[in-house]
Amino acid sequence: MAEFLNSIIPNVMSKPDLLWKAFVETLQMLALTAPISFLLGLVLGVAVVAAKPGGVLRNKWVYLLVGKVIDLFRSIPFILLALIMMELSRLVVGTATGVKGAIIPLLFGTVPFFARQVETAMAEVPPGLIEAAESMGCGPWDILWRVYLKESIPGIVRGGTITLVSLIGFTAMAGAIGAGGLGNFAISYGTRHQMDVAYVVILIILVMVSLIQTVGNRIAKKATH
């Protein structure tokens, strides 16, 4: 078995510890960024829905401000966003490299993306449900929590799955500019005529993505009645 692997992926078999280290770094980036993005994205998404014209806490200025900020960061390609976030990263976490240095750019890439996913999921809650809740004497916070969020759980789970998959893509890109992880590993060696390294990394990421997608679909299905 080892012999067979040595013959088809020699450059990976020569440095399994480095591959493992890169894999762990990628997991660390995901584990640090995903929960914070989830919370911040949820708050911003809910804020947009609540503040939109006709919303339960309508507020033109909050709606415009949050919406524009989200659009601004969504429109910057991630590779450039990661570059311009280096200064901020040094300021906040003290470094712009390594797993730690990747968190700030990853958050700026993911939070606006997830906020829009949350907004889309919540926009699918039928207005009749909101009206019914109002007729029962619910206040705006009650409506946001007990109707909007509760009813959009499947949509938010689906949006979260998509966001997590795109976050994996971001970590690979962050790797390219010094954050470590699988992306860094693949680019460091794959470009030196060790293409088998790149293929193995792609395979690992493929497995991770399918796993996330499967679990996400299953949770979403379970939450749909």
Partner: peptide, 17 residues
């Protein structure tokens, strides 16, 4: 006050979840 005024709708508006 609204708690003392029940309302039903054409589309029922039950919470599906």
């Amino acid at each position: 006050m609204r708690k003392k005024i029940g309302m039903i709708f054409q589309q029922f508006n039950l919470m599906p979840s």
